[in-house]
Design a protein around this nucleic acid. Structure first.
Length: 252
DNA sequence: CTCAGCCTGGAT
DNA sequence: ATCCAGGCTGAG
């Protein structure tokens, strides 16, 4: 990528994209714990990282300003730096011809974006029709809707009053329409709150998200349901190997 | 479709 | 020591 110019930054599903001159796109996925941090030109941290960049023989653990899980450093010609840190190393990157992105293994099978434009009732009805899988598993499937993760699926199902084990194709159109609306509302509110910081999420300037304080179901095992008037409790079950949190009373 | 596995670290 | 974690993929 040396010498290339970033012409545009964008996102598709959970992938971050940087279109470069020369017709290629740098694609990055944060996995579970990946994190980009931007150090503006002249910041001290950036200067220390620069010493490391120019002295590749250093032991990373001994490099000043470098964390042991910093894996990728990008230096811009204005002195700004971007660091990719990922302690679990589930994140990954690739360089793909921009006009081949849609056909790439990353994008090929992705479903519609949930926010741009807002997921419609009809689109979700179509996507879930005939599916025997639990609705929780269906929503985590990126082929159905692109970009939903475990937290936001739990939250959207709670808000829609839908039991996570319900077969996706067995829900009435009205209930799926409600679900589509709650998915959109949940994501919009989460974005507005800067995302959810559980342990290591942070924005590119190091800022935390605050949506975790508004979780109604996720991580609330044993607590009283947050829905006004509901006397149920939040239970935790495992579906597709992942934790699901739901209210045993108001989610049906 | 479900699940183990990919990694490391934090909480219990 | 054991379980858990925001995701994805290949294998069964």
């Amino acid at each position: 990528m040396t010498g290339r110019r970033v012409e545009r930054l964008r996102r598709r599903a959970k992938y971050l994209l940087a279109d470069l001159d020369g017709g290629e796109t740098w694609i990055a996925h944060l996995g579970m714990s990946g994190r980009f941090t931007v150090y503006p030109p002249g910041s001290n941290a950036g200067a220390m990282l620069g010493e490391f960049v120019h002295d590749a023989g250093l032991d990373p653990a001994a490099a000043p300003g470098l964390d042991r899980h910093d894996h990728v450093l990008i230096e811009a010609d204005d002195g700004g730096r971007v660091v990719f840190n990922d302690h679990r190393r589930f994140g990954y990157m690739d360089l793909v011809a921009t006009d081949a992105l849609d056909a790439s293994r990353f994008f090929r099978d992705l479903g519609p974006e949930p926010l741009a434009p807002p997921l419609s009732a009809d689109a979700l009805i179509d996507a879930l029709a005939g599916k025997a899988a639990p609705v929780k598993a269906a929503l985590l499937d990126q082929r159905v809707v692109a970009g939903l993760g475990n937290i936001y699926v739990c939250e959207a199902l709670h808000r829609a009053g839908i039991h996570p084990r319900r077969a996706a194709g067995s829900l009435s159109k009205d209930r799926v329409a409600r679900l589509a609306a709650e998915i959109v509302a949940t994501l919009q509110e989460a974005v507005e709150a800067g995302g959810s910081t559980l342990r290591d999420f942070a924005g590119a300037s190091g800022e935390f998200g605050y949506f975790q304080h508004r979780f109604k179901a996720y991580g609330r095992e044993g607590e009283a349901c947050a829905r006004p008037g509901c006397r149920g409790r939040v239970a935790r079950i495992v579906q597709s190997g992942r934790s699901t949190f739901y209210c045993v009373r108001c989610q049906r």
